[in-house]
């Protein structure tokens, strides 16, 4: 069991979008507010589909919302 390595800027992007609340984002992407909180805190990795929905709602590219650290070669 390991925590997700995916990081995100959802919190900052929400504030940039007229201080969108977690509840409003959750409603737009069809999940509970607790799931948005878990994603923001890195406790849950959303599916690719949900990740795209989040990016669309925040009106940014996917890689502006989610980042994944490069593997050390």
């Amino acid at each position: 069991m390991k925590p997700t390595r995916v990081t995100n800027n959802i919190r900052a992007l929400r504030f940039a979008r007229d201080e969108m609340t977690q509840a409003a984002l959750a409603e737009r992407i069809g999940v509970t507010r607790q799931t948005v909180i878990a994603i923001e805190q890195g406790r849950y990795s959303p599916s690719l589909e949900m990740a795209f929905r989040i990016a669309h709602v925040l009106d940014v590219r996917l890689d502006e919302v989610f980042q994944y650290p490069e593997e050390a070669s």
């Binding site: 069991m1 925590p3 997700t4 406790r43 849950y44």
Partner: peptide, 12 residues
């Protein structure tokens, strides 16, 4: 379930 709700869904 409670642990995963609190600590996060594990990635395998």
């Amino acid at each position: 379930k409670v642990i995963v709700y609190r600590r996060g869904v594990p990635q395998w």
